[in-house]
Simulated scan of single mutants.
Amino acid sequence: MLPDSEYNLPGYQTFLLPQVEGTRGLATFVRNTIPAEVVARPPDCWEGNEVLGVKIHKRSEEIVLYVYRKPNIDFTAGELFSTTYQEKVVIGGDFNAHHPTINPNVNQANPTGTHIATLLDKMPENTLITEAEATHVRGGTLDLTFVSTNLTPNVHWNLHPTLTSDHFAVHITLFNLEPASVPMPLPKWNVKKKDWEVFQQELDTWSRNYEAPINIHEAETHLV
């Protein structure tokens, strides 16, 4: 996972987000028989968070897989979840999020869990498919999987029976992808009459008079 390392898995294409200081790195492997490409600019989840996107092409279908790892830093998923407006998306990772919406067995929420629960409420184009069972050997549903809502009839989620470290491996199956069971959602914004000059002026006026709060989640709400 180091920047200067070369890793090849026979029969697979390798997509790496190398380890740098403060991160651990990510890897995605796709069979050679499936056309695939890395997402050049993955969604921003706040500085220091690791996101690796890979787009796979299956017949007339295109699906984007995002793998995410969150260190103990602030996290925002608005841009990540917004990708479902244009594409069919699968998002998986160790979110370390706690909220009754995510796991009904917990009574308390942490900031990340509250943030994700709010996004799921505001952005129904995203669906959490993780079952309410522990994904860590010490308990806790830390590893979450989200998909575009129009993919939910075609997805099966379970924990792998043997693969594990301190986390249990998550096994996701996508099937019957063509044709889609549910139509893609309509675009959320109409930009046919856009006026970027006026938009920029409004942003300039807003930014000159804005006093940002210390809490990043409150700041994100203000910006939206």
Rank of each mutant, 00 (worst) to 15 (best):
M123Q: 08
Q19M: 14
F146P: 06
A117W: 04
N158F: 02
P71Q: 10
T83G: 03
N190S: 13
N107R: 15
T164G: 02
L163M: 10
G93E: 09
K193P: 01
L2C: 02
W157F: 14
L186K: 14
P71C: 05
P100F: 11
V64T: 15
P35F: 05
E178M: 08
P104S: 11
V191T: 13
E220Q: 08
M1A: 10
T112R: 15
H57E: 00
H222Q: 14
S148D: 05
L223S: 05
V170S: 11
G53C: 05
A40F: 05
F168W: 15
S5E: 15
V67Q: 09
F15W: 02
N215G: 04
E133M: 12
D94M: 04
E220W: 01
M1S: 10
N105V: 05
L159R: 12
K193W: 02
N209S: 10
Q108N: 12
T205L: 12
E131I: 03
I34E: 14
L119P: 12
N110Q: 07
P179L: 12
E197P: 00
Q86W: 06
H115S: 12
K88T: 06
E62V: 05
L119F: 13
Y66I: 05
Q19N: 10
E125C: 07
V54H: 00
E218H: 13
H98E: 06
L144V: 07
P213H: 12
I214V: 15
W46G: 02
N158Q: 14
V39K: 01
I73W: 02
E21N: 10
V64H: 01
P43G: 04
H98T: 07
N103C: 13
K188M: 03
T162G: 04
T130E: 09
R138L: 03
A132G: 07
L203H: 08
P161G: 09
V224L: 13
V106I: 15
L177S: 00
R41A: 09
S165E: 09
E220D: 08
V170R: 08
F175N: 08
N215Y: 06
G92W: 01
V106Q: 06
S148Q: 07
I214Y: 14
R41G: 03
A97G: 12
T23R: 09
I172M: 05
F81Q: 00
Q86L: 12
D94E: 08
T14M: 00
L151K: 04
R69P: 00
R69F: 12
T173S: 13
N150W: 01
T83N: 05
F29P: 04
E87D: 07
S5N: 13
H57D: 04
K194H: 03
K70H: 14
V191Q: 01
P71N: 08
L65Q: 00
V155Q: 06
E178W: 04
N150G: 01
D94Y: 03
